[in-house]
């Protein structure tokens, strides 16, 4: 288990570094996809299948398409005008350092000092209320059950909202006959 964790972590860190160092914006975006997948793998290791699935669907899928759209719309394939000034670089390093320190502090405050393998079957069911399916059953199942019972009406309403989005996009984008 720790071996898989370190491999995924390595992939995530290396690909994230590639994202910020590639001069070609499309290449950066592609490396970002890899980062998203590696992080999704880390989520699965933590027993958070639902977040992993959403990570892949929303970030690696939807958000990525949006990024690529924007890059292609404004023709950003090659950033020539971007000045790699020392000031900008040092500012970025300082910000990244601050981020690292605050994440470390957060872990320390929460009492996390080492990576431990999860107990079999994921996290204990602390989040599940009485009578609800335990989280030990895998949280994808829990989310699915809640979505189709307690939150059935919002779930169905979302489908209507999506329908309106599709109709609206066609209305605004179609060519005049």
């Amino acid at each position: 288990m720790p071996l898989i964790f370190y491999m995924l972590a390595l992939v995530a860190v290396v690909s994230a570094l590639m994202v910020v160092t590639r001069p070609n914006a499309v290449h950066s975006a592609m490396w970002l996809v890899l980062t998203f997948f590696a992080v999704a793998g880390l989520y699965i290791l933590q027993g958070a299948e639902y977040i992993a699935a959403v990570q892949v669907l929303v970030y690696a899928g939807g958000i990525m398409v949006l990024f690529l759209f924007v890059i292609m719309l404004v023709n950003l394939e090659q950033v020539d005008g971007f000045v790699r000034s020392r000031m900008r670089l040092s500012g970025a390093v300082v910000l990244a350092g601050l981020m690292l320190v605050s994440v470390g502090a957060a872990f320390r405050l929460a009492g996390v000092t080492q990576v431990v393998p999860l107990p079999d079957g994921g996290l204990p069911g602390s989040l599940a209320g009485p009578g609800e399916p335990s989280l030990a059953a895998g949280n994808l199942e829990v989310v699915g059950t809640i979505l189709l019972t307690s939150y059935l009406l919002p779930f169905e309403l979302v489908s209507v909202v999506l329908l309106v989005a599709v109709v609206g996009a066609i209305v605004l984008a179609r060519r005049e006959a």
Binding site: L157, V160, V161, V164, A165, V167, G168, V171, L172
Partner: peptide
């Protein structure tokens, strides 16, 4: 609200 506003934007 989303259903209303999305339709209104279009």
């Amino acid at each position: 609200l989303e259903l209303m506003t999305l339709s209104s934007y279009v």
